[in-house]
Design a protein around this nucleic acid. Structure first.
Lengths: 117, 117
DNA sequence: TGTCTTTATATCGTCACTCTATATATCATG
DNA sequence: CATGATATATAGAGTGACGATATAAAGACA
């Protein structure tokens, strides 16, 4: 499959990844905080179960989009993730792509008669 | 999971279903024609493999969103699908939902801080 | 006539991924 | 000291898109 091809699976996966990268723009944070911020930032619309969140974080770390480091403040172990440059580029490109795809989708759904700007 | 909850899997699955329902607004057609129309209508962005298309058509038929009937014109057997009223309602509701998610998602991705109405 | 491509529908197996549930550990509160 | 919130992790289940493959008939071409 070509790189600019659309597939729903990859698109869905991408949404979750982009949401995580997006909140990390505010600064480095640990997983639990990411989940909270995404949920609050979207008024509860977007939400991560921890069974969903952590695998994605590991995936993003392996891909070099985020960089994790353990901190042991107050005895509580936390893995704090920071956005890398690669991750930032991925976020910008991914957001543009989501923009294009969803607007085209909406154009299709609104019916064939309508002409979009 | 509540009905108005967002999950990426369901959203992704919904995209394909809505694309199919959308082209059927033009009138009843058979599966192969649906695939062609979706691909051409989106300038090649959205595309169905037949391994993807037919299971979705069966799913939509079972759900009562479309109604299929066999035709044997010219000796070639075709299953022609028509949009039902239920399917029409599903399409309208689904389009509105895509609209909402699109704007909220882009609001999140375009940078934190701002919470959209 | 034979065969190759296009049209047309269908299903099976694989793979990836979300989601539920469970495990582990620390800190705060009553 | 038990309960709940914080915090990370993984195993198991279920779903479904995707690729490959099967079937079959129509049209083109030599």
């Amino acid at each position: 499959m070509a790189d600019d091809d659309f597939d729903v699976q990859g698109f869905a996966r991408g949404i979750n990844e982009l949401l995580i990268l997006s909140t990390l723009q505010e600064g480095a944070k640990h997983g639990y905080q990411i989940a909270i911020d995404v949920e609050e930032g979207s008024n509860g619309l977007f939400r991560f179960r921890h069974g969903t969140l952590y695998p994605i974080l590991h995936r993003l770390e392996e891909a070099g989009h985020i960089r994790g480091s353990w901190s042991k403040e107050e005895g509580r172990r936390r893995k704090v993730y920071a956005l890398t440059e690669k991750g930032e580029r991925h976020l910008v490109g991914g957001s543009d792509r989501v923009d294009v795809i969803l607007h085209r989708l909406l154009g299709m759904l609104r019916g064939p008669g309508e002409v979009l700007p």
